[in-house]
Structure formats: C-alpha cells, structure tokens
C-alpha cells in the first residue's frame, strides 16, 4: 500500500534544513510534538508523510502518535493549501447572519468543498470558527484579508477578483 498521499511531495533541501532545526529545538522539550508540528506546517504549508516521518524519527516518537496528533487538531492539514486560502467564519454570530449560504456559494463557484484545494492549487476553502469579527458578520477572509458583511453574491465577486489575478 502507498503512504496514502496522492499529492507529490516537493520539499526542498532548505525546508528540510529548517525542519531539522525545529526538531533539534523540540527534541528535549517535554510536549514538543505540538509546537514542532505547528512549525513544520509553517515550513511546508502542510504535513505530508515525508515530514511526519522526519518528525517521528527526529523526536523519537512513533509515527502513529505523530499522525494521531496531526489528524486530531483542525489546524493541521495533510493536504497542501491553495495559493489563496478562503476561510468562511461559521461562528455563531456569522451563522445566524447567513454564513452558511456564503460558504455554499463559494463552494459552488470553485467546484470544491470546504477542506479541499482546487486542482491548480490556486484556491482552498476552509470553514473556521469565529475570527472574532462578530461585529462584521458574516465574515470571510482570503489569505487573512477580511471581508465583512458579505452576501453570497459579494463573496462570489471577491473570488472572481482573485481568479482574475495573474500568478
């Protein structure tokens, strides 16, 4: 059986060197696995097999443990994220104000579901819980840029504006 990841790993030697530093930093720290995973994801953008293997070997924990932690927390991703990460807040305030419809509109526009990445790796969608901008509900963000009080139609327009951007 394969390692379960169909997306090719494209790590660079520079990334690996950085990861080794992270491992060295957390090797002796109790509870170092979480911050190490967080920093590893910061380096690679996601946590593929190759990265988790290096962490398991480097931190001397079983890969089951690494994978168990990586799949427990919503923040960790086993698949790469798009160039533009669209995040729709589904916190209570936003939900009450129709954030679910905003999310559906975006999903339909891009043809992917929340948690997925478009095949060209340009967009990925995620639903998040409360970005703390409840006064602006419903809220969506694109790479951290906040769009408040969005309607489904406006959300689609925002996506279109990013689609129009050249790489």
């Amino acid at each position: 059986m394969s390692n379960g990841n169909s997306i090719e790993f494209m790590g660079t030697p520079a990334q690996e060197a950085e990861l080794k530093k992270v491992i060295a930093k957390y090797k002796e720290q109790p509870g170092g696995l979480m911050p190490a995973l967080q920093e590893a994801q910061g380096i690679y953008g996601y946590l593929p097999y190759e990265v988790q293997k290096m962490l398991a070997e480097g931190l001397d924990v079983s890969m089951s443990e690494v994978y168990g932690v990586a799949t427990f927390y919503a923040q960790f991703s086993l698949v790469p994220k798009g160039k533009y990460i669209i995040s729709v807040c589904l916190g209570t305030a936003c939900y009450v104000k129709g954030a679910d419809r905003v999310l559906t509109a975006i999903e339909e526009k891009l043809g992917i579901k929340s948690g997925e990445c478009t095949p060209d790796r340009k967009f990925s969608i995620e639903a998040c819980r409360c970005v703390g901008a409840c006064g602006l509900a419903p809220v969506m963000t694109v790479n951290g840029e906040v769009y408040g009080k969005v309607t489904p139609e406006q959300a689609v327009k925002v996506i279109e504006s990013y689609m129009a951007k050249e790489d």
């Binding site: 924990v61 079983s62 890969m63 089951s64 443990e65 994978y67 168990g68 799949t71 427990f72």
Partner: peptide, 8 residues
Amino acid sequence: GAIGNIRR
C-alpha cells in the same frame, strides 16, 4: 506503536 487513534 504500529497503530493509533486517527482523527476525532
């Protein structure tokens, strides 16, 4: 440690 809990 060949097996563990996955997801939640």
